[in-house]
Design a binder for these strands. Structure first.
Lengths: 190, 190
DNA sequence: TACGTAACCAAGCAAGCGCTAGTGTAAATG
DNA sequence: CATTTACACTAGCGCTTGCTTGGTTACGTA
C-alpha cells in the first residue's frame, strides 16, 4: 500500500510536481511525466500518493500553509500601527508568492481542478489567510490611510498583488519589497 | 473539406466553445463535449474548425478584437484630458471584460495552451490593446494625476482589473462602471 | 539470521482522446 | 436539369491516459 503521511521524500516529490504543474498545467502533466521528473517509474508514484488529485492537493496545501505562517510572523514582528501592518502584509504576500512561486501559481490557476472534498478542506486554509488581509485593510481604512469600499479595496489590492506572478522577473532590478512599497504608495492618500 | 471563414454558424459555435472552456478548462473539454453542446456529432465539428487548437484561437481572437474596438470607441467619445481618458479606459476594460466574459476568461487563463503560431498572431492584437493603456497611463502620470513607476503602475492597474473576473458578480448591486470609478479613485492622488 | 517495511519496477488494462475517411442530403447555383 | 456547396452523419484508427497488479530490492531492527 501507499504512504500518505508527510515523509521527507513526499515533500520533495511535491516540490517537483509543483514545478511541472506550472510548466505544463495540471491536466497536461501526466503521471509518467511526474514519475520521470522524480526519477522513478509511473507505478511507483502511487506508493506516495493515492492518486493524481492528491498530488495537486499536496502542492496547494504546502503553499497556503507557508503563506499563513509567513504572514503571521510578519505581523507579529512589525510595529502595531495601521501603516506598518499594511506594509508588512503586502511585503509578506509577495515574499511568499515568490519564495514558493510554483506552489502559489498552481494554487491560483489550478484551484478549480481540485475535487470537491479537497477544495472544501483547502478553502478553510485560504479563508484564514484572507481574514488576515481583511483585518489589516479595515485598520488602514479606519486610520484614514486609504479610502473606499472595504470589499472593493481588498479585492483590488489582492488582484494587483496576485497578478504579479504573470509578469514579475526575479532576475530583474526590482525586489519583491520594492513592488510592495510601490503598491502601498500608489493606494495611500496623501 | 472544411470551412475556415467567418460564417455565422462558426461564430455561434465559437461562443458555445468559450462557455465550455470556462466551465471545464481547455484541456478537459473534449471535442465530443463541444459537439454535443453544439447539437452535432464530434466528426462534424471538423468541418468548421481545422482542429481543437483553432477553436481556442477563434475564442481568444474574438474577445481581443472586441476589447480593441470598445476601447477605441471609448477613447474617441471622451473629453481629451488625462483624467477623463483614464476613467474611460478603465470603464471600457471592465465593460468588455463582462460583456464577453467567457472569451476573456479563456484569453486570460488558457493563453498558454495556444500553439506558437497562433500565439504569435494573437500577441500582436494583445500588444495593440496594451499600447493604448500605456499611452493613457503616461498621460495620467505627466498630468500629475497618479504617481509612481509607469511600468509598475500599469501592471498593478491591469492586475486589479483583470482579477475582477475571479470575484465580480454581475447580479450583485455594483455595476462594472462602479468598479472602474472606485479603482480610479483609489489610485488618484488627492 | 529472520523479519518488517518503505521504495521501487515491469507490464498492462480499460477508458477516453483527437482526428480521419468516406458517405448522405438538402439547398443554392449554373 | 446538372452541378456545386454547406453541413451533417457513421465508424473507427492509433494513441495516451490514470491507475492497478503482482512481484522485487534495500535496509534497519531484533
Amino acid at each position: 500500500m501507499n504512504v500518505m503521511n508527510a515523509s521527507p521524500r513526499r515533500k520533495e516529490l511535491t516540490r517537483l510536481a509543483a514545478q511541472l504543474f506550472v510548466q505544463e498545467g495540471f491536466d497536461r502533466t501526466t503521471v509518467r511525466m511526474l514519475a520521470q521528473e522524480m526519477g522513478i517509474k509511473s507505478g511507483s508514484l502511487f506508493h506516495h500518493f493515492k492518486d493524481k488529485q492528491e498530488i495537486l492537493a499536496a502542492v496547494i496545501e504546502e503553499g497556503t500553509q507557508n503563506a499563513l505562517s509567513i504572514a503571521k510572523a510578519a505581523l507579529q514582528a512589525c510595529p502595531n500601527n495601521a501603516e506598518a501592518r499594511l506594509h508588512a502584509m503586502a511585503r509578506a504576500h509577495l515574499e511568499t508568492l515568490f519564495a514558493d512561486r510554483n506552489a502559489h501559481v498552481v494554487a491560483l490557476f489550478e484551484w478549480r481542478r481540485l475535487d470537491p472534498a479537497a477544495s472544501a478542506h483547502l478553502s478553510h486554509l485560504r479563508d484564514a489567510y484572507e481574514a488576515m488581509w481583511v483585518d489589516v485593510i479595515e485598520d488602514a481604512l479606519s486610520a484614514g490611510l486609504i479610502h473606499g469600499d472595504r470589499f472593493l479595496v481588498s479585492r483590488f489590492i489582492l488582484g494587483a498583488l496576485n497578478w504579479t506572478v504573470r509578469w514579475y522577473d526575479p532576475n530583474g532590478s526590482r525586489t519583491p519589497d520594492d513592488l510592495a512599497d510601490e503598491l502601498v504608495a500608489m493606494i495611500m492618500s496623501r
